[in-house]
């Protein structure tokens, strides 16, 4: 306590994202020892799948940072709707890839605006607002999808599955977005506003933070992230299907919490998102390579999440 000199080792040890990367590293080692199929391909797969979780995670993290009660439950439905409409629009034509991306982002903006209008105008808690809106998006997606599986245009599929220098293209997108989010939070005034709202809404409002404008931006951003992930995931997996977003409900929240952001808001952590996203993929592939069945795998995944949250919680609680 009396030692006031900055201690670089302790400073690193106190970074909340450290644990996510440590856990990811351990599971990586454990998996590549068992799998034997080469650590390189495992790393490549981990980066690919983690980037989908990371992109939705960044959107969800900013929402959660806004404070207690703020959470976006419409992410899976937004992903599905954006992917379905964009792929339908492109209709496997290469020339329409860029407009298709714009369609996906447009759907994201639309969903985000609807979410926020419900929260603002009806003054309903974000959980219920995004939940009931997601029912609508889901119905729209079912209606427009009609059980068809439309393939993405060839070059887009190549982009989503390809990579350069051992780094998958989708991971480049995910890392770029993470850097943007980090710059926004740590280096821009808007980032200070977001944290201020999460720490004390009333104080933030009284000190002149444009609260509603910031919240609007955050909810729209989360929906855009979800739409982009849906677009990339559908291109990666050869088409949109109706339950493609399901697992990202849990994933988006889990990566935020495991990554060291405070679930109570006001404190976010961008590097942790990627660590947690890698960890979440690696833990599943580790259990897979041990040859465990789906049931056991689900149970262990759940227990790991509860365990990590239990271990990580203490400092947040005492503070």
């Amino acid at each position: 306590m009396n030692d006031t000199r900055p201690n670089p080792i302790r400073a690193v040890l106190q970074k909340p994202w450290l644990w996510a990367y440590l856990a990811a590293g351990l599971t990586f080692a454990a998996t590549s020892l068992i799998a034997g199929s080469g650590a390189g391909s495992l790393f490549y797969a981990a980066l690919t799948f983690a980037s989908f979780s990371a992109i939705v995670g960044i959107g969800q993290m900013l929402v959660i940072t806004l404070g207690p009660g703020n959470i976006d439950l419409s992410i899976p439905a937004t992903m599905t709707l954006a992917a379905t409409l964009a792929l339908k629009f492109m209709d496997t034509q290469t020339a329409l890839i860029l407009p298709g991306l714009l369609v996906a982002i447009g759907v994201g903006i639309g969903c985000g605006v609807v979410n926020f209008l419900l929260i603002l105008l009806l003054r309903i808690p974000p959980i219920i607002a995004t939940l009931s809106a997601s029912f609508l998006y889901q119905s729209l997606a079912i209606w427009s999808n009609r059980g068809l599986r439309i393939k993405p245009p060839e070059p887009l599929a190549d982009f989503a599955t390809g990579g350069a220098l051992g780094i998958p293209n989708v991971a480049v997108v995910g890392i770029a977005l993470a850097i943007c989010a980090w710059l926004l939070l740590e280096r821009a005034i808007a980032g200070r506003w977001i944290s201020a709202i999460g720490q004390n809404l009333r104080a933030a409002r009284l000190s002149g933070v444009p609260v509603n404008a910031v919240r609007f931006g955050i909810y729209v951003n989360s929906a855009i992230c979800a739409a982009l992930t849906g677009f990339l995931l559908a291109s990666f997996s050869g088409g949109a299907n109706l339950n493609m977003g399901t697992e990202y409900m849990l994933m988006s929240i889990a990566v935020v919490v495991i990554g060291g952001s405070s679930i109570g808001g006001g404190n976010s952590n961008v590097p942790g998102i990627w660590g947690a996203a890698l960890f979440m993929f690696l833990i599943v592939s580790m259990l897979n390579s041990y040859g465990l069945g789906a049931g056991i795998r689900l149970i262990l995944t759940g227990l790991v999440i509860v365990g990590v949250v239990t271990l990580a919680s203490r400092k947040g609680y005492d503070a």
């Binding site: 679930i263 759940g302 999440i305 509860v306 949250v309």
Partner: peptide, 23 residues
């Protein structure tokens, strides 16, 4: 006891119950 976020704990438990049901 640990001041945990119930949303995350129950979300994790949903995997556990789901896994047990599949078993």
């Amino acid at each position: 006891l640990r001041g945990l976020p119930a949303i995350v704990v129950t979300l994790g438990m949903s995997f556990v119950w789901g896994g047990l049901a599949v078993l």
